[in-house]
Design a protein around this nucleic acid. Sequence first.
DNA 1: CAAACGATTTTCT
DNA 2: GAAAATCGTTTGG
Length: 198
Amino acid sequence: MKIPETFYTDTNVLKIARKLIGKVLVTNMDGVITTGMITETEAYAGITDKASHAYGGRRTTRTEVMYARGGVAYVYLCYGIHHLFNVVTNIQDVPHAVLVRAIAPIEGIETMLTRRNKRKANSTLTAGPGSLSAALGINKQHTGTSLLGETIFIEDRGIKISAKEIVAKTRIGVDYAGNDALLPYRFYLRNSEYVSKY
DNA sequence: CAAACGATTTTCT
DNA sequence: GAAAATCGTTTGG
C-alpha cells in the first residue's frame, strides 16, 4: 500500500520523520526492485533550522526542490562521493525535508550487494545515508522525482512500531549548526542493527 | 572565474 | 583513531 500524498503534505515534519520509521522504501530502477524498512530518519525544519540547506529562506538551484509540495525526492551529492536521499514534506514554498539515514534490507539484497561491491550482507550494507542510497541505486539525478510514481516510493506494509521503540536523539554531522545541532530531530528504531554508527 | 566546503564512508595504522 | 577520497554547489573577488 503506497503512502498517499496527504502523508507528505502534513505541516509537522517531526511527526512525519517519526512515522516513517517502520515504513518500506522501494526503488524500481529499470524493473530491478530493491526494498528496505526505514530504521532511521532526521528532520530538517526549513528556514528556522540552521542545519537545513534552506535555512533563512535560502533558495538556490540545488535547494529549489525543497520548496516544492511534499511528496518528492531531494537527492544531493555530499563530500563529492555520497548521494543523500531526502523526502520533501509540507506544503508548497515551505522547505521541510526528512533525511533517510538507514534502512533494513528486505528484497533485492543480491542487487544491493552488487551495487555496494560487497559479498556478504551485514549492517554496513544500508546503515548510513550514503550507503543506503548506493544500495538502492539512488543518485542525484533522482532529485525532484515524485514519490507517488513508480521509480521511488514508500509503502506502508502494516509494520507496527510502538512509541517506545522509537528513540529521539540529536542529529549527526551537523555540529556547525550551533544550538540547532542539539535539537532531538533524529529518530531511530531502538535495538536495530541497521542504524548508522558514531 | 577561483576557492572553500560539506546532512559521509572507507581504509589504513 | 586518524586521514583520505572527491566534486557539485555556493560564495567571494
